[in-house]
Simulated assay, not measured.
Amino acid sequence: MGSQAELVVDARCGTGESPVWSVAESALYWVDIPGRALHRWSAAGHTQWASDEMPACIAPRADLPGSWIAGMESGLFSLTPQDGGTLAATRLAEVSHARPGMRFNDGRCDRQGRFWAGTMLMDMAAGARVGRLYRHDKGSLAPSLQLDDLIVPNGLAFSPDGRTMYLSDSHPGVQTIWAFDYDTATGTPSKRRVFVDMNPLPGRPDGAAVDADGCYWICGNDAGQVHRFTPEGRLDRSLEVPVKKPAMCAFGGPKLDTLFVTSIRPGGDLSDQPLAGGVFALRPGTQGIPEPAFDG
């Protein structure tokens, strides 16, 4: 394995999202949003569990090992895999969406264990700026609204020291990545600025990860590439995957030096990308950092 992508699981996910490497289990977890499923892959094989609502983003729970916090359709849930391929779901918080037909999208924890997640209108073509970004703190009864006026919030990530927050909007009419100063004590972003304008670059900015060098990796949806940007916003390199719609990336493996990439399987003729919806692995020559757990 090198810069050439290798197929890990021919999962055929409608929208494979939110890959998270479990260091304790040496396993990769991710979700299929329209497939309503949580997936797990390790050297022992591939397992999945069915969900009643569409899960969009997940993070491990520090207080309940083996369980996950998830942004879904109607709010935030705690999910626990069960024997028989089902998930025990407990609602942690409801969310009053701006309008019907919305769900959560991209999300993850900051370095202090607060869960961040954005919402979007599922009819992406409408281009409605009703998306919102929320933060859910330990002991909170409901997530707090942090940003609005978004279409498809995506690309959430935090620098290794936690003091910079990244956010993208992957809608074709926006295609922008922003950086914020981040107050690690209060969980407050400020000084929003354009980090990268993706409009002249290949692909729309989708899900992201940060490596140990502080560089920001983001999937170029529609372009079949994963891009690495330096902390200054300079395009450092681009790696190819054999599908058009890579969705999100995450570092994993025993040394956290494997970049796993989930993808989308669109409808229509897939003769030129039969592996769409699969999970791929790259060796980019850099290491990631462990994903924080939700401190609930």
Rank of each mutant, 00 (worst) to 15 (best):
D169T: 02
N154Q: 09
N154Y: 10
V174L: 01
V196D: 09
T230A: 04
D206Y: 15
K191V: 02
G187F: 10
C219T: 13
D213G: 06
R163Q: 12
L156H: 12
S159G: 00
G187M: 11
F180N: 04
D161L: 08
Y166C: 04
M165N: 10
N221R: 13
C215K: 01
D169R: 01
W217N: 09
G187R: 11
G224F: 08
G233T: 04
A157H: 05
W217G: 05
A223L: 01
D161Y: 11
D183S: 10
K191S: 15
D213N: 07
Q175Y: 00
T164L: 07
G214D: 12
N199T: 11
T164V: 13
R228Q: 10
R204L: 10
A179G: 02
D197T: 02
F229I: 05
S159V: 00
R193K: 14
N221L: 09
A179T: 04
G224N: 13
A223Q: 09
R204F: 12
A208Q: 05
N221A: 15
A185I: 08
T176G: 04
L201W: 03
H227N: 10
T176W: 11
T184S: 12
F229W: 07
S190W: 13
P205G: 06
G220K: 09
L201H: 08
A208E: 06
R163N: 11
G173I: 00
A212V: 03
D222R: 07
D236M: 15
G214L: 06
E240N: 13
S168P: 05
G207N: 15
P205H: 05
F180P: 02
G187S: 09
P231V: 02
D236I: 03
S170V: 03
V194N: 10
L156W: 11
P189Q: 06
V210I: 06
G203M: 04
S170P: 05
V152F: 10
T230S: 15
D206M: 07
A179N: 03
D197N: 14
Q225T: 15
